[in-house]
Amino acid sequence: MDPSEVEFISEKESISIVPNFSLDKIYLIGGDVGPFNPGLQLDVPLWIAVNLKQRQKCRIIAPDWMDVEILEEKKQEEQESKFFTKMPCDYYMEITQLLLQHAPDNIPKADEIRMLVKDIWDLRIAKLRSSIDIFVKSDVTHAMLNYLTLMELNTVRPFLTKALDHIQQLRNNVSYGAALWSSQD
């Protein structure tokens, strides 16, 4: 899957905006949105928020988790935990990326948040890599990984599936050899 497809999926997440125009409820396949009233906060899907923001029609309210203190805490927790911790949002990377690109003026301390999210991402990817390595070195056939987000999975997918295919083949050889041996005895 291409990262932009993952981003497309993440655009369904809802986010709060404050519009500066009025419009009746609009009916979409994904659900009804609105009505829009100037100055009244409401929840809309991310793609609408970004689109309205691009046309200067609204102010985006940063999600609760997009806050320096919460992210610092999250980073600390991620550092200390051996396993993956639950992220405040399944699409944290994509949403940060989109919001910081299109609405940096609506996010307080945008630069710090960008750094923190990147740090958390790097921590998690490093963790993911070392767990993959442990998984490959041990002879187990399955492992459980909780709280990985789609984007994280997506970066290792092409690599990991190929590597596991190869290992599977080599394992088949081993069991084939063992079967031969026992049949000859």
């Binding site: 070195k137 290992i167 080599l170 394992r171 050889n173 081993v174 084939y176 050899g177 063992a178 041996w181």
Partner: peptide, 13 residues
């Protein structure tokens, strides 16, 4: 053969 098979897997790991 069985040793070769095991060694191949180990090398890759």
């Amino acid at each position: 053969s069985p040793d070769i098979a095991k060694s191949l897997l180990k090398v890759f790991q």
